[in-house]
């Protein structure tokens, strides 16, 4: 199980990439900051970076708009 933004629990599976996680969450907004256990994941590494079990994942959307 991993935690998203200190609130939502998501079932973990081996090989889960950041991009797969974002797709599953339907996080389609492009301006985001992703950290895993406090470490920043660069935008161009979402496809390759895997998420470890028990990870504390933060996905901060930079949208103050509307």
């Amino acid at each position: 199980m991993i935690t998203i933004n200190k609130r939502q629990q998501v079932t973990w599976y081996a090989g889960m990439t950041v991009q797969a996680l974002l797709d599953a969450l339907k996080y389609s907004y492009p301006h985001i900051i992703v950290t895993i256990n406090g470490d920043l994941v660069k935008h161009d590494a979402y496809e390759q970076t895997t998420v470890p079990d028990e990870a504390d994942v933060r996905v901060i959307h930079l949208i103050a708009g509307g």
Binding site: K6, V59, A64, G66
Partner: peptide
Amino acid sequence: QHDEAWLIFMDQVNNELP
């Protein structure tokens, strides 16, 4: 009218305003 404050993502998605 949302031109005063638009905090949905900060609050609902990012959980930055607990």
